[in-house]
Write a protein that binds this DNA or RNA. Structure first.
Lengths: 251, 251
DNA sequence: CCTTTTATAGTCGACCTGACTATTAAAAGG
DNA sequence: CCTTTTAATAGTCAGGTCGACTATAAAAGG
């Protein structure tokens, strides 16, 4: 922005006037992911109107005049999930999608976000009439607009973030076992991991997880009770937790 | 986007009408980086108009009605640098900035991009009247709008990309020495690296660089002539080339 | 009690890393 | 022409990390 302004002045239009008749609608789209029963799920809403009536889509909506995209995303997330604690949630900007024609009605530029939730509240009809549902990632296909692509980008991004950041704990409840944390990695990456090695690396990364004081353990499960951990203070992972067998891809 | 549509219909406004009177201007901003004499430089333009008249800013401009943000960024890059080969350039979306009030005149949502260039053509007055200049990164302060932050975000992002991708070769001419490649890392990270170790890691990463056929070497320099390399086919770096002495930061 | 299940501890060789030394091949300067 | 300087490249070595694997502990189910 900014660099163009002289040209606007030269052609005799006020800045606002020139672009007011070619407005862009700005929206946010949310890829809200969670883990249910060991598999990745995404929050989808069913569209009631054309275009794409009856199709599933990522939740989202228009920016209000006085809010940032982050604010709008948080507001929409609260509206669509019915969650109360949205304020403490980690929202990350994914990418902006601006191809002309991605919405058949008008020019829409959309800022996409990702959000990670611990296993989420079952019922959410969304504040807006639209029906909302958790759908297994693999069944979320043929979404409205370019949401297939956004969702795929979100998964790729999350997978990368798990390598270098402590984002995985966002999928877990406040207290969790290392087994649960490993399930996060396995679900997002789609690869089984060796348990002792995973444990060693997680505990070796300073600030990733911290044991719950008192040596609390999760009982009631099948085998030996697991120690409970909380998310640590670190945001980034050193050394990184790299996925196995990735060789140099040309893409 | 999309999820909100029912509400629009309910309140009796057509979609387009409702938002036409609250339009958002959409722009692109470019953080174009290059290496000159071993230090990082950024392309800036001088503003001629208020607000921020006389201040330096990142190049950029408004989206035209029928182009994507990527198209607009590429067009602006060509206009402002006068480069001919913009088609082969790697443009990467950085982030979108949408805080209300970031432009005092109107509501502007800006999609920021990064671009990396080999040591660039000296003269570029930009297609638009504005003056354009390469400025050392450390001297690019107090830019217009929120461009200080965008530039800082860009440097952080590029630094991270150097660890995991082959992006560093984008700073180099088609044929380069490992010494030049090391200078890229040192300039972006702001850390000196051990030459033999750097060399070992770069050559160990499959597809990062490929020797120029015929064993061509760069003569005319000070010491022993260096072998020439080209960018290899890989896009990602395995194993990654991590910066030294980073400990778990809480931020 | 014995099997199953899951968590946790430990082992081992291959490989990678950082720090460092040594050698080579050019240019620069008398 | 020979010495010095500079930079590229080769090689070394101890410590750390990795993946693969084995062993033990502690619960539930029959």
């Amino acid at each position: 922005m900014g660099g163009e302004l002289p040209r606007e002045e030269h052609d005799g239009h006020g800045t606002y006037d020139k672009y007011a008749h070619e407005p862009f609608a700005v929206t946010v789209d949310l890829a809200v992911l969670t883990l249910r029963g060991g598999t990745l799920h995404v929050l989808l809403v069913e569209r009631g109107q054309e275009p794409y009536a009856g199709r599933w889509a990522l939740p989202g909506g228009f920016l209000l005049p006085d809010e940032s995209a982050e604010d709008a995303a948080r507001r929409e997330l609260a509206e669509e999930t019915g969650l109360a604690d949205v304020s403490g949630l980690r929202l990350e900007q994914l990418r902006t999608y601006s191809e002309p024609g991605r919405d058949p009605r008008m020019r829409v530029v959309s800022v996409a976000f990702t959000a990670l939730l611990p296993d989420a509240p079952e019922a959410h009809g969304g504040g807006d009439a639209a029906q909302a549902r958790w759908v297994p990632y693999d069944e979320a296909r043929e979404l409205a607009f370019d949401h297939d692509r956004i969702l795929a980008d979100a998964r790729t991004r999350i997978g990368d973030r798990l390598e270098n950041t402590c984002a995985a704990t966002a999928f877990c409840p406040p207290e969790f076992t290392l087994g649960e944390l490993q399930q996060v990695y396995e679900a997002v990456w789609g690869t089984p991991l060796d348990r002792p090695n995973f444990r060693r690396k997680v505990l070796a990364a300073p600030g990733f997880v911290a044991p719950v004081p008192g040596g609390a353990r999760l009982t009631g499960g099948r085998g030996k009770p697991a120690a409970l951990y909380r998310a640590g203070p670190a945001a980034t992972l050193h050394p990184p937790l790299l996925r196995p067998q990735r060789e140099g891809r040309t893409t």
